[in-house]
Computed example of a mutant assay.
Amino acid sequence: WGVSNWQIVEPNPIPWLKDDVGADDKPLPLRLVHPAEWDLIAQIVDLLDATGALTQVNWVKRGMALSQAFEEFYRNCRIWGEVMNQDPKLAQARLGLVGMTQIVVRSLLQDQLELFSPVEL
């Protein structure tokens, strides 16, 4: 998958994990727990897994499923306003998920469907 001109910016990584550790020192839980967040993550992983498939893949169908999952996420998971003020790390993690979706959609359009991808999606 071509990543175009995207780069991960350090030293401010996306806070995917919660900061607190349980009393039993279990691994840190994911910050993204809303069903719409999980569905979007699942669609991204499913689409990326399909790139290695040896069988014919319906990229339009996969792209539509990703698009619908993103719309559901956008409808149900706020980033700005109250969320940004009360839990800025959650807002940052959700922005990271938006960025990952953008990268995958751009790559799907350019690499799999051989279509023009606008600079701003």
Results as ranks from 00 to 15, higher is better:
Gln86Cys: 05
Arg94Gln: 09
Arg31Gly: 04
His34Ala: 14
Leu90Tyr: 10
Gln110Trp: 03
Gln112Ile: 00
Val3Ser: 11
Glu72Cys: 05
Ala65Val: 09
Gln92Val: 10
Ile79Lys: 07
Ile8Lys: 13
Gly22His: 11
Glu71Met: 06
Gly52Met: 08
Ile79Tyr: 06
Lys61His: 08
Val104Asn: 03
Asp20His: 10
Leu95Gly: 01
Val98Ala: 07
His34Asn: 14
Val105Leu: 02
Asp111Gln: 14
Leu113Gly: 00
Ile44Ser: 01
Gly63Ser: 10
Gln68Val: 02
Pro11Asn: 14
Arg94Glu: 12
Pro11Met: 07
Arg94Lys: 09
Asp111Val: 04
Ala50Gly: 06
Val60Phe: 05
Glu72Arg: 13
Trp80Lys: 14
Lys89Trp: 04
Pro35Glu: 12
Val21Asn: 04
Pro88Leu: 07
Pro35Thr: 08
Ala50Gln: 00
Asp49Lys: 12
Leu32Ser: 04
Val60Arg: 07
Lys26Met: 06
Gln56Phe: 00
Met100Lys: 08
Arg31Pro: 02
Ser117Val: 08
Glu37Cys: 03
Gly2Ser: 10
Ala42Ile: 01
Val105Gln: 00
Arg75Thr: 13
Leu121Asp: 06
Ala65Ser: 15
Gln110Glu: 15
Asp111Phe: 05
Gln86Arg: 14
Trp59Ala: 02
Phe116Tyr: 15
Gln7Tyr: 02
Leu40Asp: 11
Lys89Gln: 15
Ala65Met: 14
Glu37Arg: 03
Trp1Asn: 05
Pro29Asn: 00
Asp46Lys: 14
Ile41Leu: 14
Met64Arg: 14
Glu72Met: 04
Gln102Phe: 11
Leu115Phe: 08
Ile14Trp: 08
Leu108His: 03
Asn5Thr: 15
Leu66Glu: 06
Glu114Ile: 03
